[in-house]
C-alpha cells in the first residue's frame, strides 16, 4: 500500500511533466464547450452552407442536440485520446529499463500496475466530469427545454466504460513492448465489441452499450435498467483484465 502510494506520486509527476494532464484538460474542456456551441451554430451553419433559398424551415436546436454532440466527442474521440496517452505507460518503462532500479529497491510489481491504473482512472474521471459540467452549464443556459430529462444519469455508463477501457490499454501495454501496443489492443477490443453488437442477443450485455446508448438515456427513451447487464459485464471485465495484467507483469522480465 505504502509502495503503491509512492508510485502513485511518481505517476502524477510523470503525467504532469509529460503534459498528459494538460492535453487531457484542454481537449476535454474544448469538448465541453464545443457540444453546446455546435448545437447552437448548426442551423446557422446549414443556412450559410445551403443559402437562404432553403424552402423547409430548420428546426430550432434543443438540449438534446447539445448532448448528442457531447457523447459523440467523448465516446468516439475522448476515450481514444485517453488510450493514446496511456498507451506506452508500461511498455515504455519496460523497454527503457526504468523499473529495474525501483523493483530491486522493493517496489512490488502489483503496485506498478495498480498505481498506473488508478492515476489513469482519476484523470479520466476528472476529464469527463469537468467536460460534463461545462456542457451541462451551457446547455442549461442556452437550451432550457425538457428534451433531456435524465442528464445526470447518462454520464455514469461512460465513466464505467473508461474503467474497463483503461484496463485493456494497460494489458496491451504490458503484453507487448511497443509504445502503441496499448492503443492498438484497445482499438481492436473496441472494434471487436462493435462487431459483437450485430448479434442481437448479446447487445444488452455488451460493454459498448455504455457509450452508445447515452443519448437515449438522456432523452428518457431508454431506461438505465436496460443496460444494467452490460454495466455488470463491464465492471467484471475491468477487474478480470486488471488481474490478468498484474499476473502478466509479475512474470515479465524487466
Amino acid at each position: 500500500m505504502q509502495a503503491t502510494m509512492t508510485f502513485w506520486h511518481k505517476e502524477w509527476l510523470a503525467a504532469w511533466r509529460n503534459y498528459h494532464v494538460l492535453i487531457l484538460a484542454v481537449v476535454f474542456v474544448i469538448f465541453g464547450i464545443e457540444a453546446p456551441l455546435m448545437a447552437k451554430l448548426m442551423p446557422d451553419l446549414m443556412k450559410l452552407a445551403l443559402g437562404n433559398q432553403l424552402p423547409i424551415k430548420l428546426p430550432q436546436p434543443t438540449s438534446s442536440d447539445s448532448w448528442q454532440q457531447f457523447y459523440k466527442n467523448t465516446s468516439q474521440i475522448g476515450i481514444f485520446l485517453l488510450a493514446l496517452i496511456f498507451s506506452g505507460s508500461v511498455s515504455q518503462e519496460v523497454s527503457s529499463g526504468t523499473l529495474v532500479n525501483l523493483v530491486t529497491k522493493g517496489l512490488p510489481r502489483y503496485a506498478v500496475i495498480m498505481a498506473k491504473y488508478l492515476v489513469a482512472v482519476v484523470q479520466w474521471v476528472i476529464a469527463i466530469g469537468g467536460s460534463f459540467l461545462i456542457t451541462w452549464g451551457y446547455t442549461a443556459y442556452y437550451f432550457p427545454d425538457d428534451k433531456s430529462p435524465h442528464v445526470w444519469l447518462a454520464i455514469w455508463p461512460v465513466l464505467l466504460f473508461g474503467l474497463f477501457f483503461i484496463a485493456v490499454v494497460l494489458l496491451g501495454s504490458t503484453l507487448i513492448n511497443s509504445n502503441y501496443a496499448g492503443f492498438l489492443v484497445a482499438a481492436l477490443v473496441f472494434a471487436g465489441l462493435a462487431l459483437l453488437n450485430y448479434v442481437k442477443a448479446v447487445k444488452r450485455w455488451n460493454p459498448l452499450a455504455l457509450v452508445t446508448d447515452n443519448l437515449d438515456l438522456v432523452r428518457g427513451t431508454e431506461k438505465i435498467t436496460h443496460i444494467l447487464p452490460a454495466c455488470g459485464v463491464t465492471v467484471v471485465a475491468a477487474l478480470v483484465i486488471l488481474g490478468v495484467t498484474i499476473w502478466t507483469f509479475n512474470r515479465k522480465r524487466l
Binding site: 474542456v29 474544448i30 464547450i33 464545443e34 456551441l37 451554430l41 446557422d44 451553419l45 443556412k47 450559410l48
Partner: peptide
C-alpha cells in the same frame, strides 16, 4: 447574416475556446 454574427452572438462559448487553443 454574416460570419461575424455567428461570432458575436456566441461570445461566451467562442472566447474560452479561442483562449484555450
Amino acid at each position: 447574416m454574416h460570419n461575424s454574427d455567428l461570432f458575436f452572438n456566441n461570445l461566451p462559448l467562442v472566447v474560452p475556446l479561442m483562449l484555450l487553443e
